[in-house]
Simulated assay, not measured.
Amino acid sequence: MASTVSSKTRKLPTQAIGAKIFHSCNVISLFLMLTSGLQIYNANPVFGGRAGLHIPPIFTLGGWLAGGRHWHFAAMWLFSLNLLWYGIYILITRRWRHRFVGANDMKALQKSQNSQRLIYAWHRIVYTAIIPILLLALLTGIGMYKPAQFPWVVDMFGSWQALRVVHFATVPMVIVFVVIHSTLGRQAGGDKLIESMFW
Rank of each mutant, 00 (worst) to 15 (best):
P45A: 06
F100Y: 14
S115K: 00
H54K: 12
Y89E: 00
R117Y: 00
F73C: 07
G63V: 08
F22V: 11
S24I: 08
Q15G: 00
G63Q: 03
I40C: 03
N26G: 14
S36E: 06
I58Y: 13
H123R: 10
T60Y: 01
L135N: 13
L53D: 06
N44P: 00
M33C: 06
F100N: 00
I40R: 09
A103M: 13
K107M: 11
W71P: 03
R124H: 04
R99F: 15
L135F: 08
R50M: 10
T128I: 10
A16W: 05
I119V: 12
W71A: 13
Q15I: 00
L78R: 06
R95Q: 15
G48P: 12
C25A: 04
G102T: 12
R94D: 03
Y89R: 02
A74V: 15
N82R: 04
S7K: 13
I130N: 05
L65R: 05
K20Y: 07
L30W: 08
A19S: 12
T14G: 09
H72W: 01
K8M: 12
F22E: 02
K111Y: 10
L34Q: 01
L81K: 14
L83G: 14
V126G: 06
S24Y: 05
W96N: 14
P132W: 07
L78P: 04
L134A: 12
Y127S: 11
V5L: 15
V101Y: 03
S80K: 02
Q39P: 03
K20C: 03
H23W: 01
F47T: 12
R10E: 14
R97V: 09
S24C: 09
V27M: 07
R94E: 14
I90N: 14
G67S: 08
S80W: 06
I28H: 02
A103F: 15
A16D: 11
